[in-house]
Design a protein around this nucleic acid. Structure first.
Lengths: 137, 137
DNA sequence: CTAGCTGTTATAGTACACATAGAACAGATT
DNA sequence: AATCTGTTCTATGTGTACTATAACAGCTAG
């Protein structure tokens, strides 16, 4: 599980870390129970400060993707793929509003509803066809 | 054409202004040739600084949504709904990548491809059914 | 032609988020 | 009990957003 961080990017480092871990969960590269590196070791590997990684982990914890267990560190939550009502609905609402925003932008530049859905279908097919096996050591 | 700005929002003011004007273009509330308020008057109406509005207008100009014409001020570009290849493709790529990102987030929390497309279809229907007539004074 | 309004640019100050740095703490595990 | 985990605290530097004046070039209505 190697993260690819762009220090020169506009996107904050802690958000890049968070996004790539969520991505790994989506593709199955990370499964419930899998441990994440400690904030100190990951910070060392990435060449960033410990607090930057810690912020990414705190966001993932608040979002319900990982749980913290004392010395065991951060591990992927059992409920990561089937979240309980509260968090799941909240995050689904966020995605809905962002889809609405994208549709609005698309229409403003002359796109049709059918073209927009075709674009969504293409991207969805690409994302949902991606399958990665976790290390079965 | 009244803008609703939230000074306490996380989203920068100039982006809120830009988004709501793009939204008005999408719904037809603003049509090619329609003038926008001057940066000074709009800033006065919204209770923000002139430079904040000017930044929003500069973004809209760079994106091809409006053109500046001396004292005539900023008006909606003729090509706003049918942009030329360069800008149109660039903005479509941005939307594609954001759709991909949303699909990834959706999958990470246990959503399926069909559920994602259903959500996109619902939001698209809502957005593309909205029609507003411009003032025909 | 010219007075006036347009967007544009420059400088300066305040406020906040991001990232870094060093240090110390409570909790769970080995 | 020693050790490693995330967490919290204070402090500093940097970049962006916003505000505040001020001046400028361009177009255009009178």
């Amino acid at each position: 599980m190697l993260l690819d961080i762009d220090l020169a990017s506009q996107e904050p480092i802690f958000k890049q870390i968070r996004s790539q871990i969520v991505s790994a969960i989506a593709t199955g590269e990370l499964s419930p129970g899998d441990p994440l590196p400690s904030v100190r070791s990951l910070a060392g590997d990435l060449g960033v400060n410990m607090h930057t990684v810690n912020k990414a982990y705190a966001v993932l914890r608040d979002e319900g993707y990982v749980v913290m267990r004392g010395r065991s560190g951060a591990v992927i939550a059992d409920t990561a793929r089937s979240m309980s009502s509260a968090l799941a609905q909240e995050r689904r609402d966020v995605i809905s509003s962002e889809l609405s925003r994208l549709a609005l932008e698309f229409r403003a530049q002359g796109g049709t509803r059918e073209e927009f859905l075709a674009l969504a279908s293409t991207e969805a097919s690409s994302v949902f066809s991606t399958i990665k096996e976790g290390d079965s050591k």
